[in-house]
Computed example of a mutant assay.
Amino acid sequence: MPGAAPSFIITAEACSDIAAREALLDRAMGPKRRKKSSEKLRRGRRPSEGLAFVARDADGHVIGTVRLWDVRVGEGGTRALLLGPLAVDPAMKNGGVGSALMRHAVSEARRLGHGAILLVGDAPYYARFGFSAEKTGALAMPGPYERHRFLALELVDGALDGAQGILRSCGRRQKPARLALAA
């Protein structure tokens, strides 16, 4: 049908998607993406179990990605998820891919029993998924970030009550490259 939105599906990310995902992130976010505060929390870690997704077009090409990461607020504090990056192939922008990835990621995080999701992003975009800065006032990211872009969504009411401090990585460590190739 002419003018119809392209079709896509969302699947769990596979090891075979790594190169396509990284190329997509480079196209969508540029070379400075690795210098963000959120990246410091992801470096050397694997996404939270069952919470890494890609969107594929009808030909199976990766056109979108979202991953969630295990973090802890402060030393030994509240556990939460850090969402990001969410990225869509620039050629597919405004096709509903990013929204579908967000809805899927939030739904799966809730299904898996997580209490809250944090992110640094555009408040007007993420507000439609329930994110706001209301619960992030006593929280901080490591390194520079724009405070008004630090947002949270409680999947369980009260999950962030009393949470305070700087976010820290607490997820599964990534295998060193040599060991990963041998495994």
Rank of each mutant, 00 (worst) to 15 (best):
A4F: 05
A4I: 02
P6F: 02
F8H: 09
I9W: 06
A12E: 15
D17A: 05
I18D: 15
A19E: 13
A19C: 06
E22S: 08
A23L: 12
D26R: 15
P31C: 03
K32A: 15
K36R: 14
S37T: 07
S38A: 13
E39H: 11
R42T: 02
R45A: 08
S48C: 13
G50E: 09
V54H: 09
V54C: 12
R56D: 02
G60F: 04
H61E: 14
G64D: 07
G64M: 09
G77F: 09
T78K: 12
R79V: 09
M92C: 11
N94I: 00
A100S: 12
M102E: 06
A109H: 04
R110D: 13
R110G: 09
L118A: 02
L118Y: 02
L119C: 05
V120W: 00
D122F: 12
A123W: 01
A123C: 02
G130D: 11
E134R: 15
T136N: 04
T136F: 03
A138N: 11
L139R: 02
L139E: 09
P142G: 02
E146N: 13
R147C: 01
F150C: 07
L153S: 08
V156L: 12
V156K: 15
L160W: 11
G162D: 10
C170F: 03
R172N: 01
R173S: 11
P176W: 06
